[in-house]
Design a protein around this nucleic acid. Structure first.
Length: 340
DNA sequence: AACCCGTGGTG
DNA sequence: TCACCAAGGGT
């Protein structure tokens, strides 16, 4: 691991921020100003989600719920509808809980330090540091995937970023480098660097504004960083989706309050051991496939008459279209439409 | 610490 | 097809 002198650190800050001022993505909507609410919404949406995916969601969200008070007062269904298709739906629920905490418990007075911001639901070590530095100028590193990648290469840090304990190693290494005058811009510049010249697969270090600080590139081992152990494959699961129609309405089922897609409405799903379990009753020729981080679903549509249970309900198209539905349910609805 | 939680894009 | 990636947090 490299150790930088005070002079190198000052040189790096100046080089990075000069580049950021000239070529950073200044036009991102959440960089319009530094209001903590706008920054919070963007940071939550950007968790494990790419900028291009977030952009239209962010614009629409801020249009409908422009202030933290608006979000606090909104019905949860509206928040989930604005989040529909973005995934990791606990983020949306926690975001609203955070807004209600700020409005109801703190009377609209935002926590200003990273430590205090972590009290907000859904706000962890990274997000709290991002908000504290961007909105309140706290000198603290925002250690996200970009920071891991950028600094693992610059400093040749070989700690496994999949390990929880590595976060402190990176935090401690980056803290003395953060620009004390512009901590928010410093953190965002690292992110811009990580998504442009210092990407995971095809880095363009030869043109990188900080190539002279890149020890891994210097030594020809750039792609060896960051060190990250592999994830496990998604578990395959087979389901039968019950298609039951009554008076032009379709039967939906509300999923349990905990677990995958908790609280969302889908067609009733029954796990089956093999396709033989439904012996040729399926309507579709190929299964609907949907892949989550840890699970891979293959779903067969089966038409059958049933009696609705307490968690099931017949919904008109007007009714279900008003709901926030997970993407897998939209796939099932599209497949059913194909069969008509 | 290890696992859970969505979705869309890429080579 | 599949592994991996993308501004992580909760339990």
């Amino acid at each position: 691991m490299e150790l930088w002198s005070e002079e190198t650190i000052r040189d790096f800050r100046h080089t990075l921020l000069t580049w950021y001022d000239q070529e950073g993505r200044a036009n991102l909507p959440w960089r319009l100003n530094h209001e903590p609410y706008r920054v919070l919404v963007s940071e939550i949406m950007l968790q494990q989600t790419q900028v291009d995916t977030v952009l239209p969601y962010y614009e629409r969200f801020m249009q409908h719920l422009p202030t933290v008070q608006d979000l606090a007062r909104a019905p949860e269904e509206q928040v989930l509808k604005l989040w529909e298709g973005l995934g990791y739906y606990s983020r949306a629920r926690n975001l609203q809980k955070a807004a209600r905490f700020v409005v109801d418990e703190l009377h609209g007075n935002w926590p200003e330090s990273a430590d205090d911001l972590q009290e907000l639901p859904g706000v962890g070590p990274y997000t709290s540091a991002a908000i504290a530095s961007i909105s309140f100028n706290e000198v603290v590193p925002a250690v996200d995937g970009n920071a891991y990648r950028v600094f693992s290469r610059l400093l040749k840090i070989d700690a496994d970023i999949a390990q929880t304990k590595s976060r402190k190693i990176f935090y401690d290494a980056i803290l003395p480098i953060v620009d004390p005058q512009r901590p928010g811009d410093f953190n965002q510049a690292i992110m811009d660097l990580g998504s442009s010249y210092m990407t995971a697969k095809n880095p363009d270090s030869i043109k990188s504004p900080v190539r002279q600080f890149n020890a891994a590139y210097r030594d020809g081992v750039e792609l060896d960083f960051p060190v990250k152990t592999k994830k496990q494959k998604p578990v395959k699961q087979l389901f039968m989706a019950t298609i039951s129609e009554k008076d032009g309405e379709l039967l939906f089922e509300k999923r349990p309050e905990k677990g995958l897609l908790s609280g969302f409405w889908t067609f009733p799903l029954t796990e089956i051991t093999s396709i033989d379990d439904i012996k040729g009753q399926q309507l579709n020729i190929k299964p609907i496939v949907h892949v989550f981080t840890h699970r891979r679903w293959e779903i067969w549509l089966v038409k059958q008459d049933v009696t609705a249970t307490s968690t099931q309900q017949y919904l008109s198209s007007t009714q279900w279209q008003a709901l926030s539905l997970p993407t897998v349910q939209h796939k099932l609805l599209a497949a059913l439409e194909e069969l008509r």
